[in-house]
């Protein structure tokens, strides 16, 4: 581990490095956690670890990949540590919960769902909808669409059955599609 003495030149170089990558790191943490304050804590820890490895990272072409992987792992560890009950409820169906029925939810996706999606308002609404999704839907969707993990990798990482994972993700996508179509969720 590198000694954590803050020399002015190193500090300036590290600050520039951080400015270049902070949005990517923060995005990964914020989307996985759905909580901005926790995401900032995770991003801070990521950059402290980056500082400890700055000599290797500063000119490395895959530095952003390293940062995002650390952010992802820290965020998932945070979820596993503090919200173990999520996995329990995700893995086993609750027979009394009508929302947990295996039948496909009723919703017709409009063909023009992408119309006007370029608007900043739509992006903000989509981000907000993603944030408010249940954890068992949001986390796999983020890992699949933003972190480029496969279904099998996500199921393995989260320790849940592949079929259950696909059902959760489908429901999450339906909820997001409703937002895009302007339907209240």
């Amino acid at each position: 581990m590198q000694s954590q003495e803050l020399e002015p030149a190193a500090a300036a170089a590290f600050a520039a490095f951080m400015r270049s990558h902070q949005n990517a790191v923060y995005s990964t943490a914020a989307r996985l956690l759905g909580n901005d304050a926790q995401a900032e804590d995770i991003a801070q820890e990521v950059f402290i670890r980056a500082y400890e490895n700055f000599a290797e990272l500063r000119d490395h072409p895959t530095a952003v990949g390293w940062l995002r992987t650390v952010a992802r792992n820290l965020a998932l560890n945070h979820i596993a540590r503090y919200r173990k009950r999520w996995r329990f409820f995700s893995e086993y169906r609750n027979e009394d919960d009508p929302d947990d029925d295996e039948a496909e939810p009723e919703f017709a996706v409009p063909d023009n769902v992408l119309a006007d999606v370029e608007g900043g308002d739509r992006r903000a609404r989509l981000e907000e909808a993603l944030r408010t999704l249940p954890e068992q839907q949001r986390v796999p969707l983020v890992l699949f669409h933003f972190e480029d993990l496969s279904y099998a990798e996500i199921a393995d990482r989260l320790g849940i059955a592949l079929a259950k994972l696909k059902t959760d993700m489908h429901r999450g996508r339906l909820a997001l599609a409703r937002v895009l179509a302007g339907v209240e969720i």
Binding site: A24, Y26, A30, V113, L114, R123, L126, E127, L176
Partner: peptide, 9 residues
């Protein structure tokens, strides 16, 4: 749709 989402600031 999600591929077009910019990173969070």
């Amino acid at each position: 749709v999600l591929a077009g989402q910019p990173p969070r600031r």
